[in-house]
Design a protein around this nucleic acid. Structure first.
Lengths: 188, 188, 188, 188
DNA sequence: CATGAATGAGCCTTCATTCAT
DNA sequence: AATGAATGAAGGCTCATTCAT
């Protein structure tokens, strides 16, 4: 589904690489294609064929989360309460960022390795922008923050939660920070 | 003034190393002791003698900013208006973080290379904590954020401002983000 | 034949590295992987791929001698004369130690880099132990030296022969020292 | 007493350097003049002035032991029993070698840094040679080992005792090895 | 004499990437 | 397609020795 339909064995290889990369991301190990090749018992060349750079692999690992976020965002657009819609969306975004270590670098990167990533990120920004705009229009949020600020702020909160916190407490911490920010964001 | 009085020539070398390191930090180049030795035309050993690790050098570069922040914080403690004191302190902190690239890593690091750094960071946390506590007591801020959250939040805002923003606009962006956060923080 | 069947070109490289290492050992030069890479005109990485540490390379160089000693030891076990068997074995061991500079460090090392080395050393100790035990049983040797003393004593004699002797005379010297020791060892 | 009478403070420095070097030798730390300078709180230059090389310092550390051995040897020459005299001398030598880590390298070194060392070593060889010769004349030892073999054999035994043995057991082990060797040496 | 800053060769090791098989 | 050997630049760090102060 990435580009061209892969042969069955090639597809299996692709899956195994991504699966192992996912594990590495989860345990905080940096992705090194050599390392991964060893772990999946393939030649480096094979790994390079599937993923020309470590970034491409990382983005592939992040893709499901990005897709899920996008889907949620689109559902939120269907919510008739603009404030709730925005809050839900941002909460999910933050939770995902804090939970999935592949998201922060991919989200914050100024440039992407895969077109699919660019596409997803744009959709996400767009959805976020629309949600914010609706909230603006409904006069439930202040107007000095724009849709361009959504991504940085979410990254910032995720980052804040990762400073000095046990990984276990991160989700809770991030929620608190988001709450504080939202309190500031909402018109009262 | 750092530890022991250096000989005049050694002091000059120390200065040159720190100066070059400062430039590298400003242009976003990672500090590498070998690299620095080449740039200042000294043997690696000389650089290693002055700064046993890259972290020690980075902290040395960051020290003046940390000292300035501490000084400002202590002035803020003298302000009789708790809200203004806190706002001023946080604003300065954020401006410094965004302006001086050496601050973020040093601030966020769980462990320090130099005792002086530890000392300054502790003072800074302490001052921030006191300012927040006063604001609490004066009932001008919400109580669900504690002094332990100050540092992460400041780091988060600085990080947020560095995502997707031209360096030029960063100070302004960071101020806006801080304002939003403060709006959420302040009791209304 | 070491671990996995290597590709032809890789095998050739392996051979060249070991050959050069052999020369260096013979001329008393310490093994340094960088140095070897330069001498065999390969990238450092290639040498590191084949031999992760200098110890691993040294043990590889020593392996043939260890194998030969083991084989001789097993032949000696077939000798019906316990005294002659022990004498032959120790004589060969000493000659090898004095002749091949890779043996002493590998033999004396408390820990090994390659499993094969551990295996060979254990076999060797075991064979030596059995030969000594037989001699004990036949009451041809004193009982205050045990099989645990064989290795140290052989190392000691080899070391003694290397003190103050021209390399040329070492084998002869070592034989004389072994003779003296055996005279003391044998019951009379 | 080394070369020229030192000024009082210089003498004190000399003593401190040697004392620290002694400790390092005892704990198995290699002698590095930089390291020592730091430990005795002197400039490297000062240490270098007193001891131009690490070898010179090591020999200085070893000197008292060498002197003691020499003295004992000369006493042994006064013993009218040639066998006992030789045995005593060799026993003491081995015990010293095993006990004092500075002796082995100095004894085994083909060349010396200090004239005093050369002198002491020669005396020691000479005394050992005389003791052996007397034993020869009294027909209590075999004649295929000569005085030139004394030093290597003592070094070898000390080395053997240091292979695979807990430091605590070394003296005892070395004594056993010496006994075995002497049994082979003595005419029966 | 004492000091200790400076030197820089030299060793170790890693890793992204290429390319022959 | 797959393999994995080879590459070598790059970075890290140590330490014996010199020499300006």
């Amino acid at each position: 589904m990435t580009t061209a339909p892969l042969r069955k064995d090639a597809a299996r290889n692709w899956e195994r690489i991504v699966a192992v990369a996912r594990e590495l991301v989860d345990e905080g190990t940096p992705l090194q294609l050599n390392d991964i090749a060893r772990r999946v018992h393939m030649g480096v060349g094979t790994v390079y064929r599937h993923f020309p750079t470590a970034e491409a692999l990382l983005e592939t690992v992040a893709t499901p989360s990005l897709e899920a976020l996008t889907a949620h965002g689109e559902q939120a657009l269907a919510d008739e309460d603009p404030k709730r819609a925005l809050t839900d969306f941002l909460t999910r975004t933050i939770e995902a960022q804090v939970t999935d270590a592949s998201l922060s670098p991919v989200t914050a990167a100024p440039t992407d390795a895969l077109p699919r990533t660019t596409e997803l990120k744009q959709t996400l920004w767009s959805v976020g922008g629309q949600l914010l705009e609706r909230a603006h229009d409904a006069e439930v949020v202040r107007t000095d923050l724009t849709s361009d600020d959504m991504v940085p702020l979410m990254c910032g909160i995720a980052f804040a939660a990762s400073v000095h916190g046990s990984p276990a407490a991160r989700v809770e911490t991030a929620r608190r920070y988001l709450t504080a920010l939202l309190e500031g964001l909402y018109v009262r």
